[in-house]
């Protein structure tokens, strides 16, 4: 419990900053929407004339961005990216930081097993991830609701946030797994965010090309994307199962490798 509380405290400041940035991102984007919607249909028509690949890059392939739900779906791409970056960095950092800060000779000589240290740390990371998700959820509901003009959005937002939560969990567990394997604690965060950006770019390529849909399972950003979840869509069981598998395997790796390996001092 003491390690859990200590980690919460240690990450409090950074979590607050992430939350503020998230709220700011949503607020700023919705501010843009206000300008966009007041220009009426013309903006939407203009964008419809964009080449398909360009629209794909901005993630607005199938959405009508004149509608608040469509606009939010496009924005969600970046919200999710931000939450995923946070989760990946947190997962890698929370496991590797004792070695990076050379405090392992403090913590790991205490009468606690490495397994329970990892559990406390991962629980603290989970709390951080949940809080960022809830802040995103609540501020999305509030800010999108302001412009919805009666359009029902809360159902879609809820679904997107559940999807985002699973993506956050995937990247957090991958980050922790990498930190557990990595012999150099300083590279763990860089490698995790590198993997994240690679999968993000892959997701973009899938959108642009339209022909490599079979690669979707390689990038968590495609597991629960707005175009499948919104307008009555459902979570794909295959992707859900695959997510659970990734999370289980990488968490398992974290415990297995970190418990056994020599600490770098």
């Amino acid at each position: 419990m003491n390690i859990f509380l200590r980690e919460l405290k240690a990450h409090r400041k950074s979590l607050i900053i992430w939350c503020i940035c998230m709220v700011f991102l949503i607020a700023a984007s919705m501010g843009k929407y206000e300008g966009l919607s007041s220009s009426g249909q013309s903006m939407s028509e203009l964008l419809n004339d964009f080449p398909k690949s360009l629209k794909a890059i901005f993630g607005m392939g199938t959405f009508d961005i004149a509608k608040v739900s469509g606009y939010f779906a496009v924005m969600f791409l970046f919200i999710q990216l931000m939450a995923a970056v946070h989760a990946a960095m947190l997962g890698a950092d929370i496991i590797s930081k004792e070695e990076r800060d050379k405090t392992s000779e403090f913590l790991f000589v205490k009468p606690v097993s490495r397994t329970s240290i990892i559990s406390s740390k991962l629980s603290a990371a989970l709390v951080n991830v949940v809080i960022l998700n809830l802040v995103t959820f609540i501020s999305s509901l509030a800010l999108v609701g302001k412009y919805s003009k009666g359009e029902a959005v809360s159902g879609d937002i809820t679904k997107l946030m559940i999807g985002m939560f699973i993506v956050q969990l995937i990247f957090m567990s991958v980050g922790s797994g990498i930190a557990a394997i990595s012999k150099n604690p300083k590279t763990a965060t860089a490698v995790s965010t590198g993997i994240l950006l690679t999968t993000f770019i892959l997701a973009e390529l899938i959108d642009v090309s339209g022909k490599i849909d079979f690669l979707k399972f390689l990038t968590p950003f495609k597991y629960f994307s707005p175009d499948t979840l919104m307008y009555g869509g459902a979570f794909g069981l295959g992707f859900l199962a695959f997510s659970v598998l990734i999370i289980a395997v990488t968490f398992g790796m974290t415990y297995k490798f970190f418990s056994a390996r020599d600490l770098r001092i």
Partner: peptide
């Protein structure tokens, strides 16, 4: 974990959580 209850260790190079106060670190310990 069991034997470490009764061990006190002073490493050759001491590094602690920089942002903590001494008393907080000792209480944490």
């Amino acid at each position: 974990p069991e034997i470490k209850k009764e061990i006190g260790y002073l490493p050759s190079e001491v590094f602690y959580y920089d942002k903590m106060k001494v008393i907080d670190l000792l209480n944490y310990s």
